[in-house]
Design a protein around this nucleic acid. Structure first.
Lengths: 253, 253
DNA sequence: GCGCTGCCTTGATCAAGATCAAGCCGGATG
DNA sequence: CATCCGGCTTGATCTTGATCAAGGCAGCGC
């Protein structure tokens, strides 16, 4: 499934026309996604953009593919184009915790570390642009705006991780599930402001449980309660409509 | 209480002598701390170091002092010299979660944000060097090594936050308490490699509970169990000796 | 000395969420 | 079509940690 993107304002922000983009001889497959990739890399000058494009491969990964394993060497960064990537850690006895979800246009991969401190896995079908480690680091070196952008992503992820620590440590199961629904509603479509009211859950119940520090049974029961309380509707297991956004937000603690 | 610091290797790393440091006319009060402040700021050239020193005030804060409030404007960053600063968030109904502890020589304060996303509070008596926001940002602007250092701190804090999410989401109370003891043992003395075996807990039982997402009663019971199992000894409520480090580590899950 | 306060511990009981178990549903496969 | 399988839901029961309650202990002011 290829999602539609509204790209006009990104082009304007970059002071480029669509023709400029296409003239760069970029080996991308997914036309609707290519602009986002460059959006991520911000105001790179044309020569850097060309260099980046030559080094980049766009890859479609089915749900469940492991992008980077915990404690394995990282050879490349993945720029998320469509879909959701989950970051997780596993204790020795198999208990798993998802420690972050990444949406377009996040960059997957721990900068400046030779070993990934966590597993990155496609939670839904995803499309990524894969940039070799050396390429990106070289671009960072000579490109202040890219550097700033990555610093901003790191700080934003830190804020999000700390927000989620409150959810994990202090919220009830009902509040956790409500918080997750709002999180997904706000992140799913980066082009739309505010929360989506209708969307498909990009991740399984097990992933939700692992993100919230709960069991799938508890997650399922909380969904059922939200449904019977008339706050959401669920069809085909994954398709959510938020009927009463206000009451959902109130349940977030 | 002023802790003793071994400073020789820091000076060597900076290619400076103690005389160089003292010649800079730095308005610091705590002689044993000033070197650490510069350690944080890395290889700043002498003129930047002088500029920084002129703009900096060293402050002693008793335990409980609020350094920055949640959602308040931030006018300055605090460089931790001695003691422990806790970062926390509070839900509307008062539930609190500590989302990070900062030890020397961490820099307290969210870069590039006008409003602090969290509360920063002295968990123990602390000494900080307070740097005005504009000063630090100006130094970052023209100083690649400082920039890199702050990026590294942000990424390290992100790693730590994500590690802690596993603790919050998936560990039992016993594992949480064991993990905390190890965390404190490894962070308390930044000059010593490995874990301290004997130390004073720098934070109260309530703070521990708020960091672990537990209640004080549960924390207290877990301490009692570690004691009766012969893994630690506790005297005067705060003074800890780790008798059996291996078994403690095994309890971390 | 006495009582007060803040911080911590311990015990009894309760409830949220985990665990165990069964069954449902939709899609794939023969 | 029947069967299977993975993902999800629902119910019954159990366990962990929360809650409620009481008391210990060190420091401090009178």
């Amino acid at each position: 499934m290829v999602r539609q993107h509204r790209t006009g304002y990104i082009l304007r922000a970059m002071d480029m026309t669509r023709r400029d983009i296409h003239s760069l001889d970029i080996p991308v497959l997914c036309k609707s996604c290519e602009v986002r990739h460059k959006g991520m890399c911000g105001a790179l000058p044309p020569e850097d953009l060309q260099y980046l494009s030559r080094q980049t491969r766009q890859i479609e990964q089915p749900a469940g593919t492991e992008l980077v394993g915990e404690s394995t060497d990282v050879g490349a960064y993945d720029n998320v184009m469509c879909g959701v990537v989950k970051l997780s850690k596993t204790l020795e006895d198999g208990r798993q915790q998802i420690i972050g979800l990444q949406f377009a246009p996040d960059l997957v991969g721990r900068l400046y570390a030779s070993e990934s401190p966590m597993t990155a896995e496609a939670a839904s079908d995803v499309t990524v642009c894969r940039v070799p480690k050396a390429t990106l680091e070289r671009l960072i070196e000579r490109n202040p705006s890219l550097r700033k952008r990555l610093m901003d992503q790191a700080l934003r992820e830190l804020d999000e991780a700390r927000d989620w620590m409150v959810t994990l440590g202090r919220k009830t199961a009902a509040e956790k599930v409500a918080s997750l629904l709002l999180l997904i509603a706000t992140h799913l479509d980066p082009d739309a402001p505010g929360e989506a009211r209708v969307f498909d859950l990009p991740i399984s119940r097990l992933d939700i449980a692992d993100y919230l520090g709960l069991t799938i049974e508890t997650v399922s029961r909380q969904f059922s309660r939200l449904k019977s309380d008339g706050i959401i509707t669920i069809t085909a297991n994954r398709h959510i409509e938020i009927v009463n956004l206000e009451r959902l937000a109130k349940r977030c603690g």
